[in-house]
Every structure is written in structure tokens, then in C-alpha cells.
Design a protein around this nucleic acid. Structure first.
Lengths: 126, 126
DNA sequence: TTGACAAATGCAAAATAATGCGTTATAATG
DNA sequence: CATTATAACGCATTATTTTGCATTTGTCAA
């Protein structure tokens, strides 16, 4: 793989993601970083978020609709509300053994993603 | 919610998905059903796949890129190859207790999705 | 049966998401 | 410093998904 160079844009994107505790889409990250760097393009945000996710510096969440990104790579599950589309964290000590140990005949396992879809507390009353 | 009526198109779409063992995108399902029903539109395929997924008759998989659909709702994980983008099944008896029992303070849990990203056997050599 | 109601469709356009490409800029080398 | 290779950029385009609307079609009850 090619050597990664420094870029102001990528630094901004990573900082933004590390300093927020929600799970923004590329569009949301763009809206945030464009304030500090008006010339940045949405394409650059997409590209860098994907690069950072490939490097394991952030998490990419495909949860329906646009992808979301998570600045926290500690072990946790995601709870996705089907009504308001928000993503919540569920912290855990470690993955269940049955999942962590999966070795499916030659498939080289990388990131493991556990997502629970449902209805959040706030939306249940509505 | 309104009563669901029968439609030839929905039946074709569901049958197609039940009779294949891959994980097609909406576009792929369209290409298949249009052979049996030349007048069907891609919009109808999208609409019905989403309806069927909401009803729990099929699974909608958000794995990055276009959504994929799965006609088999039995308990299983998905292995997604980051190179060729194919989706493989990993059958299991039941979900680990730690996951099945999650009850996060008012969040009403529905579908649970476990996805492992990695590199498949075929792509590892390349 | 037949008429009425509304679910579902096909088409096309709009909205949303993601990528290709020519240009710019980082950083290693002489 | 000047040069050079190529990572990263911004813009424009393409890909994907949803939606509006006029029309068709499945159901139910008269």
C-alpha cells in the first residue's frame, strides 16, 4: 500500500470525528469541517472517511441509508432506531467467544460489526 | 397500517429471492424478474424489497455500497469480502446469549445483525 | 357479478450517495 | 533549494434510492 501523506483535510476530518460522540454521515462531517476549511469538498470527506476506516482509525457503519462513521474504535455494539434513525452505543467488555473465534474455512476475518435494529426509548411513545 | 394486497410483482420478487442462494442487490433482482415480467419497473422492485424486509419475510443487508437482500431469514451471520464485495453465509444454531439478551434501558430490540468484514478465500491469493 | 375503494404499479423526475478524473500539493531525493 | 513521483484534492459526473402522480388492479360487500 502507498505511504500515507499528511493532509490538512484529513486531520480536520479525524479531529472532528474524535471530538464528537454521535455517529455522523459523510454529509454531516462535511457540514462540520467546511466551517474550518471552506474549500474542502464533499468528495474529499468521503474519501478520507473511507481511508481512515480502512486504517482502523475510525469505524464505518453501514446501517441502512447513508453510511455512518464512529470515531471510537473501542469494542461496542450499535443500536439503530428504525424510527428516528439515530445510532446508539452499547459498550461491552469483549465480543462473545462464538463470534470472535469464527474461522470460516479460509475467510480472513477483519472488523466485526454487531448491530441491533429496533425502536429507541424516545420513539416508543410516538 | 393498510392491508397488504396480493400482487404478481411482489410474488415474483419474493420467489426469486427465495430460490437463489446469493445476496442480490435491488438491481440484480430486477434483472432477474424482468425476464418473467417485462413490464415491471425498478421502482417497484425497490418498493417491494423494502416492504418485504419490513414484514420480516426477507433480510435487508447494509454492507457498504448498494444494499443487498437475503431470502433466508434463518439465524446466520454474514461474511463480507472487502475485495470482491460478495456476501457469504455463516450458519449458527442460535445467537450468543450475551447478544440475544441485550436489553438497553428502554430500547426495544428487533432484528439483530452480525457482519464480519474480511477477505474471502478466492481473493486472498490475488 | 358489479361497483367502489384504495393498494400497487409504471414511469419519470427528484433526492441522496458515492466515485472518476484532471489538477494541486506533500515530501523524499539530489 | 529545485526536481520529481504520486497522494490527495476539488469539481463534475455517475450511481443508487426514493418519490409524485396518473393509471391499473385486488378485494370486499351490496
Amino acid at each position: 500500500m502507498a505511504v500515507q501523506r499528511y493532509s490538512k483535510q484529513r486531520e480536520l476530518i479525524l479531529n472532528d470525528l474524535k471530538n464528537r460522540c454521535d455517529h455522523p454521515t459523510a454529509e454531516m462531517v462535511y457540514e462540520s469541517v467546511v466551517k474550518k476549511c471552506p474549500a474542502i469538498s464533499l468528495g474529499t470527506v468521503y474519501r478520507n472517511l473511507n481511508t481512515l476506516a480502512e486504517n482502523g482509525q475510525i469505524l464505518k457503519l453501514s446501517v441502512g441509508g447513508a453510511d455512518h462513521f464512529d470515531g471510537c474504535t473501542d469494542c461496542h455494539y450499535h443500536l439503530v432506531c428504525k424510527k428516528c434513525k439515530r445510532v446508539f452505543d452499547k459498550w461491552i467488555e469483549r465480543l462473545p467467544k462464538e463470534i470472535a473465534d469464527i474461522n470460516d474455512n479460509g475467510f480472513e476475518v477483519g472488523e466485526i460489526n454487531v448491530t441491533l435494529y429496533g425502536v429507541c426509548k424516545d420513539c416508543k411513545g410516538l
